[in-house]
Amino acid sequence: MDFIDKLTELSARIQRQKESVLTEEAAKTAFVLPFIQALGYDIFNPEEVIPELTADHGVKKGEKVDYAIQLDKQKVILIECKPVGSDLEAKHAGQLFRYFSVTEARFGVLTDGIRYVFFSDLEKENKMDERPFFEFNLLQFSESNVDELKKFTKNFFDLQTIISTASNLKYFKALSEEIRAEFDSPSEEFVKILTGRVYPGRFTQQIKDQFTELTQRAMRDFIRSRVNERLKTALETDNHENVAEIQKREEVTEEDLNKVNGVLTTEDELEAYRVVRAIGAEYVDPERITMRDAKSYCAILLDNNNRRPICRLYFGKSKMSVSIFVPENETKIDINKISDIYRCRAELELAIKQYDKHS
């Protein structure tokens, strides 16, 4: 099973179980240990995954870090766990700060079993930074997030490689947050800088109010223009979407961009989707079963939520298969014709019912 598939499977489990995981110990057992295992570490080997590592600090004796990951007899990652839903900011990482300074580990992770916040000592050696350089959320992640997380897996772990990119990750994240904040609500400082470049007069309160609104409108117009440029480029591709109509929309969805970038849903995929929907109609409202196509596969989801996958269709020129997300596993079944999907009724039922307690 690929790394991203392991994470998707764990994400589906969290969706099902998070309401029942109420304590820190439950989060560690149900979510954190499977996450460490997905990274490729042997959670049953105490020389590789050390639970309750004692990390004495000054006058504080007997303090323990929840888990330490060790490679070649060197501790490389410290993990401190909190209950699901806990704040995971630097001010809540006091224990992790103390553990970090008395071990050789270069990475500290604060987690509630769903979010994993990664810290290092990029600013001052052997002192954990207050600002994390990376965060991974098991309920909301992209392929680029997975690529970054993969660097921490046992097979790919290389300290120098991670350290060399961690600084850029950290400040890129910080800059992204600042840009998002300015986009949502431009600060006086930001508005004043831009105003000074286009308006020669004094920056009075009246001018501030006027240019704050203008700045916000200009930024939104810029983003819309860039999206339109991408859509216009797509006019050169052979697809069945009316690009001009998409350009008129107030918001452009991911599915719109997929369609104009060469993702073509085949008749076989549409027929297979109708079969899955017909089977699923016995258990849920068929309107809840949706399809989201991509270049490498066609996903069938519950509630149009990519964290609720029912199955994926892998339809090549010479081979067809259906990968069904049954609880705790993913079952891949080769088929010769679309009607063969009816033979997967039991697996599809399990895949659908796992997300809906009322089904």
Rank of each mutant, 00 (worst) to 15 (best):
F107W: 11
S318W: 01
F203H: 12
T290P: 02
G316K: 10
E254K: 14
T23E: 08
K317M: 11
K64I: 06
T161G: 06
L122D: 02
N329C: 04
I279N: 05
E177D: 13
E178K: 06
I162R: 03
F44N: 14
Q74Y: 05
G113V: 01
P83S: 10
I300K: 05
T290R: 10
P309I: 00
L10D: 13
L348V: 14
E188Y: 01
L348P: 04
F97V: 06
L175R: 03
E182N: 02
L22W: 05
S185E: 15
L39Y: 12
T253H: 01
V117K: 11
R343E: 13
T161Y: 05
E182G: 04
I338V: 15
T266H: 02
D158K: 10
I4L: 10
R16T: 10
T253R: 07
T204R: 00
E255Q: 13
K61M: 13
F152L: 07
L110G: 10
L71P: 06
R307N: 14
K6R: 14
R220L: 05
A181S: 15
E349P: 03
E123M: 05
Q354A: 00
N137Q: 03
L301Y: 05
D129Q: 08
I341R: 02
V260F: 13
G58N: 14
L96F: 01
Y355H: 06
V227E: 13
F156M: 10
S321M: 09
L301A: 04
T331H: 06
Q206N: 07
D303L: 09
K73M: 08
I279D: 01
C311M: 11
E189T: 04
F152R: 05
L53A: 11
N336K: 14
I289T: 12
L159F: 08
T253I: 01
N239E: 04
K61Q: 14
L138C: 08
L235M: 10
A93M: 09
K173R: 12
K75S: 04
V260N: 09
L10T: 06
E189C: 00
T195F: 00
L350D: 13
I338N: 12
I352A: 06
A68K: 04
S164D: 15
N305L: 10
Y67F: 15
L302D: 08
Q210V: 08
Y199C: 05
Q15F: 07
V84S: 06
A234I: 01
E9P: 02
P286W: 02
A244K: 09
S359C: 09
F136V: 07
